[in-house]
């Protein structure tokens, strides 16, 4: 079937198998930042934002995402900035080891910060419960999200 997806403000028209998942469709079309860590909804490496909310793209058929705004890590930073604050603080805090979980982790964190701009460490841990990382032990990733929350809410106050 033919579908049209909006990904990072771009339109993608693609001919897909009706049973294709959003994960498969995104990767096949060059969005390889969306990782295939388990294809079973258990690891969070395939997370994308759907209308701003984090979702496991392996658990959605691509056709379900039609009409929604899809954001991958490539589309997170503004056009004029090198990094989104979450990307910057993830490096500053040392939250990146192998980096495989990082796109999904950051996207889920951005969903959290939209819901709750100043989360506690426990709030962050609770929201990342579906984003597995085998390298870090999460300490520095939670540090990074706390730091990003502070930067983003400062920006909000400054207008």
């Amino acid at each position: 079937m033919r579908i049209t997806l909006r990904i990072n403000d771009n339109e993608l028209r693609a001919e897909i198998a009706p049973g294709a998942t959003l994960l498969e469709t995104l990767r096949a079309n060059g969005y390889t930042s969306v990782k295939d860590g388990c294809a079973n909804g258990d690891c969070g490496t395939c997370a994308v934002l759907l209308d701003g909310r984090a979702a496991a793209s392996c658990l959605l058929f691509a056709a379900q995402a039609e009409g929604k705004e899809i954001t991958t890590i490539e589309g997170l930073a503004g056009a004029d900035e090198a990094y989104h604050p979450l990307q910057q603080t993830m490096l500053d805090a040392g939250g990146v080891q192998c980096g495989y979980c990082i796109p999904g982790m950051i996207l889920t964190a951005s969903d959290l910060l939209a819901l709750n701009p100043s989360p506690t460490r426990a709030d962050i841990a609770e929201y990342l419960v579906g984003n597995l990382c085998r390298c870090t032990g999460y300490v520095k990733q939670i540090d990074a999200i706390e730091m990003a929350a502070a930067i983003l809410s400062e920006g909000a106050i400054d207008g």
């Binding site: 909804g41 969070g44 997370a47 759907l50 909310r53 984090a54 979702a55 496991a56 658990l59 959605l60 889920t108 969903d111 959290l112 929201y127 419960v129 579906g130 984003n131």
Partner: peptide, 8 residues
Amino acid sequence: GNPLLRNI
């Protein structure tokens, strides 16, 4: 579950 599931 987790937010990635609850959102969908």
